Simulated assay, not measured.
Amino acid sequence: MKKKNRIKKNEDFQKVFKHGKSMANRQFVIYMLGQPEEKEFRLGLSVSKKIGNAVTRNRIKRLVRQVFLEEKDSLKTGIDYIVIARKPASEMDYHEVKSSLLHLFRKTKVHRARPQRENSIKNT
């Protein structure tokens, strides 16, 4: 993930926490704040030490980043996202993490409708 797509500063995190909207499921909490002047989205990650050791925390962050990278074309731009991992996320594999985050994307309506494939249209 590019540097311009990351949220690193505490003041940026606090701004999203105070003024953004949040949605949660059992594994993740996602905070979102619109930034209309931005052309792309930015992502901040928070994984507590309560979740596990450094290896576990970094693994969760890698998986979340990968999901955002794969879904970047279908996510709305101009939004700051902060993802907070909860304890059950430490035992999940990639597909479970992706499924959980896609569930949150649908709940928050940040997932753009994907264009239908031509093959599925031409089934006559």
Rank of each mutant, 00 (worst) to 15 (best):
V47H: 00
V47K: 00
V47D: 00
S48R: 12
S48T: 10
S48E: 06
S48C: 11
K49M: 13
K49C: 12
K49G: 15
K50S: 14
K50V: 05
I51D: 10
I51L: 14
G52A: 04
G52N: 02
G52H: 03
G52T: 06
N53Q: 10
N53L: 03
N53C: 08
N53F: 08
A54S: 15
A54G: 13
A54K: 09
V55M: 07
T56D: 01
T56G: 01
T56Q: 11
R57T: 07
N58I: 01
N58A: 13
R59T: 14
R59I: 11
R59W: 10
R59V: 12
R59P: 14
I60N: 11
K61G: 00
K61E: 01
K61N: 03
K61L: 04
R62W: 14
R62Q: 09
L63H: 09
V64M: 12
V64N: 09
Q66T: 15
Q66D: 08
Q66S: 13
Q66K: 10
Q66H: 15
V67P: 00
V67E: 04
F68M: 07
F68T: 03
F68E: 02
L69N: 14
E71F: 07
E71R: 13
K72C: 02
D73W: 03
D73R: 13
D73E: 15
D73K: 14
S74L: 05
S74G: 01
S74V: 08
S74A: 08
L75C: 13
T77W: 01
T77E: 15
G78F: 13
G78C: 12
G78E: 06
G78V: 10
G78K: 08
G78S: 06
I79A: 05
I79H: 03
I79M: 09
I79P: 05
I79D: 04
I79F: 11
D80G: 13
D80L: 13
D80P: 15
I82D: 07
I82M: 04
V83P: 00
V83W: 04
V83Q: 03
V83M: 08
I84P: 00
I84G: 01
A85L: 07
A85I: 12
A85F: 04
A85E: 06
R86N: 04
R86V: 02
K87Y: 07
P88I: 07
P88Y: 02
P88K: 05
P88C: 04
P88E: 00
A89H: 10
A89V: 00
A89W: 11
S90M: 10
S90Y: 01
S90I: 05
E91A: 13
E91S: 14
E91I: 01
E91H: 12
E91C: 06
E91R: 11
E91L: 10
M92V: 09
M92T: 05
M92D: 00
D93N: 15
D93Q: 09
D93S: 07
Y94W: 01
H95L: 09
H95G: 02
H95D: 06
E96K: 13
E96C: 07
E96T: 12
E96P: 06
E96Q: 15
K98D: 08
K98G: 10
S100F: 00
S100L: 00
S100G: 10
S100V: 02
L101A: 11
L101C: 09
L101S: 07
L101E: 03
L101M: 08
L102T: 00
H103K: 10
H103S: 12
